[in-house]
Design a protein around this nucleic acid. Structure first.
Lengths: 337, 337
DNA sequence: GGTACGGTTGTAAACGTTTTCGACATCGTT
DNA sequence: AACGATGTCGAAAACGTTTACAACCGTACC
């Protein structure tokens, strides 16, 4: 006797419809070469029994699953915005999306990224999107696209923002407001984006003739938790900065909170500028002046790239760079002489 | 010749190590009955070749995958908070998490939920978490837990909040502030939570003797987009409400934005209270007074329940109800005589 | 009336695992 | 020396599909 939770298999459908398994498979996949009335009879049985083909069995046999995977390190704003863009891009294609999320503790387990990727790629998913990966070596012909890649030249296709230019814009903006002591909260040192933003900060300072004070730089690793300590340090200096450029919005918002907990007013006592333009930056108080990198767009473009790569595997790996833009809100103010 | 992208299979390992496939499988899974030196030799080859067993093949054969799936309708704040809780709960168990997200357009495609569930359940995943599902009939003995279930008695285990009590608390709070014309922006009519919140609103109004004015109720479907029109309607009435209770925070924030676009000040001209206590509610301006239902906790408990259910399938379906709590912030004010 | 052919269907192999079962050694016991 | 117990291992079936191939049937053509 069939137990109730047993799946309905293609064999059940075949038996019920009085045809062979092969025929059922053909009508399920719309293959050519099955008589119209057979087809409709089988289809009726399929609908009746509520048959759904097993993704794993299909994958095992045909190496094609019509799903693409995304591996994200956490579910913080950056990742979720990106996911939205990916979901939007996936919509018109025939693919479906599955997400594997790390637990947010970077470095807690190093192996998980490799493991997920190995699981997805080549079996479960036809292609994979890798978001802000830690060191991962990937067979360079696998259908993988990296968003916000690891530092160094990548043999894989990548999607990133104009990090250098954006960081220079942010720094120039603060300089233009008259700030001279400008602190910097850096991002995850392993990521190309973080390095470029730091370079942009340095470059703008030097170009303006202000020069670089190593004492004004701390590492916040793009996270709220890692930012709080360094922000305290900067603000409790005997000669604290009058402005802080944080390498991403999460750090910037954390910095504002620390400032306010120290009795400092943003922007009156301290100007803060971020990078990313996540949703939360518009809602903070004061609302955060920041550099917009349309994160959703990155997810969208990366997904588009990936789908292209799956259909046409032997391409030169593309490296997309999306523009950034200054978004002026309430968290910065000109220095009062 | 092996093509570079070909996966390394258990057969490759077996050949390289000079043993049978069965033996390799045994050492991979730590089965009893393989000699220590054979085991270590095989293990060495595994590490050397970087072999990872194919999830789909394993699943097909053994019906166990050590992953649990979550199906969410979108990637809006409620869902993402829930995901965080689930990720936290999964961490200590031996399971891994994969997420399938709809595209947010409720009703756009009705079939996707069923399809995803069918794909996950029984093949890809050992169990599935269903978040705010639209109508879905599930074999009631499948390992599935529902968060914020569909209206009506569910044969499946569920996790929900004290929606009725919370809604009464919210309404009572507004009444206590002296409000008499209190509007309501309802949620998705198919969800139990939305119905209970509306009931709580009604019950509090009647108990206080104010009574219920059907003209003050609109449907916002829990989304920003669906809320804007109804909010406009309420606020442009000849005799508009002095307070609005929105069935979730997303609606409440949208309502505040609409009010401000009409030149109304929150809370001076209009008090707004929400439900959920999503992160954004603390960041809005003014910050939103709301009913806290610890969403992460729901995700956590639901996941815990699911894991339990997988290990011990023949349980009476549990129905968990988590407490809610009033969180007073800046968006409500007493009526000025 | 035989043959060729197109359309329709079934048979069986393959995908990469896990697991049952039996084979073979080795060793201790009588 | 024979036998059973034990430890180690391989052969092969099974999971639910897809697809190459062959088989079959009817029709049209010579």
């Amino acid at each position: 006797m069939r137990k109730a939770q047993d799946r309905i298999t293609i064999g059940d459908v075949a038996a019920e419809a009085g045809v062979s398994i092969a025929t059922v498979s053909r009508v399920v996949n719309g293959r050519y070469g099955v008589a119209p009335d057979t087809s409709s009879r089988v289809q009726a049985v399929i609908d009746d029994l509520g048959y759904e083909s097993s993704l794993v069995a299909r994958s095992l046999r045909s190496h094609r699953t019509s799903v693409i995977g995304i591996i994200v390190p956490d579910l913080e704003p950056f990742s979720t915005e990106l996911l939205k863009g990916a979901a939007r891009a996936i919509h018109s294609t025939g693919y479906e999306l599955i997400v594997c999320a790390g637990d947010g503790h970077v470095g807690a387990q190093v192996g998980w990224e490799r493991r997920y990727l190995s699981r997805l790629n080549g079996t479960l998913a036809d292609g994979t999107l890798l978001v802000t990966p830690t060191v991962v070596d990937v067979a360079h012909n696998a259908p993988v696209v990296v968003v916000d890649p690891h530092a160094g030249a990548s043999p894989l296709p990548t999607v990133a923002s104009q990090n250098l230019e954006g960081a220079m814009t942010a720094t120039d903006y603060l300089i233009g407001l008259g700030h001279r002591r400008i602190g910097f909260i850096a991002g995850r040192p392993d990521l190309e984006s973080a390095r470029l933003r730091e370079q942009g900060y340095l470059k703008a300072l030097e170009r303006s003739g202000i020069g670089f004070d190593p004492g004004l730089v701390r590492v916040g690793e793009y996270t709220r938790e890692a930012t709080e300590g360094p922000a305290h340090e900067l603000l409790e200096m005997s000669d604290p900065p009058t402005a802080i450029f944080a390498a991403n919005d999460v750090s910037a918002i954390a910095t504002m909170d620390v400032a306010q907990s120290l009795g400092l007013s943003v922007p009156d006592d301290l100007s803060v500028i971020g990078f990313d333009n996540i949703l939360e930056s518009a809602l903070s108080s004061p609302s955060l002046t920041t550099i917009d990198q349309s994160i959703q767009e990155m997810g969208y473009e990366a997904t588009r790239l990936l789908v292209e790569l799956i259909d046409e595997p032997d391409q030169e790996p593309a490296h997309l760079t999306l523009p950034t833009e200054l978004v002026v809100r309430q968290s910065c103010r000109a220095v009062t002489a």
